[in-house]
């Protein structure tokens, strides 16, 4: 096993040398720090907005929007989804489809939810 693995490791190293050279990683590190600052700023924004006592719907929209940006930053840069292999995108795409169905679960099937949504639409869509 050990022989096998170490040769494998060497192969990998050779194969990946271009994409993962120390200079390349240094660039990554700079990106991480920028993302870190952005995440901090967005956290400050979302907490700050919550003290403004916006009406519920607006507050929810802002909070979820900011959270989505933060989550995207983590997923794209820390989890390297910005440059991932195809197979991972395919797997996540499949999971994503079913995730959408799951999140639609309360929306499509509860009568109260639907009337609530309708009221919301009547209020905000002219």
């Amino acid at each position: 096993m050990s022989n096998h693995s170490s040769t494998a490791a060497k192969d990998t190293h050779a194969g990946h040398h271009d994409a993962h050279s120390p200079e390349e990683i240094q660039k990554h590190v700079r990106t991480y720090l920028v993302v870190f600052v952005a995440l901090g700023a967005l956290t400050a924004i979302t907490v700050g907005v919550s003290y403004l006592d916006l009406p519920p719907v607006k507050a929810i929209l802002v909070a979820v929007f900011v959270a989505s940006i933060k989550a995207s930053l983590v997923a794209l840069y820390f989890m390297h989804l910005i440059s991932e292999k195809k197979v991972i995108y395919v797997m996540l795409g499949i999971a994503g489809m079913f995730f959408v169905v799951l999140m639609a679960l309360p929306v499509v099937t509860e009568t109260e939810v639907r009337s609530w949504l309708r009221a919301l639409l009547m209020k905000y869509v002219p």
Partner: peptide, 22 residues
């Protein structure tokens, strides 16, 4: 492990506004 850990972070990023802020 990092991927898992970032996911835990990511869940918290949604939990925080959903439970505490709105």
């Amino acid at each position: 492990t990092g991927l898992y850990w970032h996911f835990v972070d990511l869940v918290w990023i949604f939990l925080f506004p959903c439970l505490y802020l709105i």
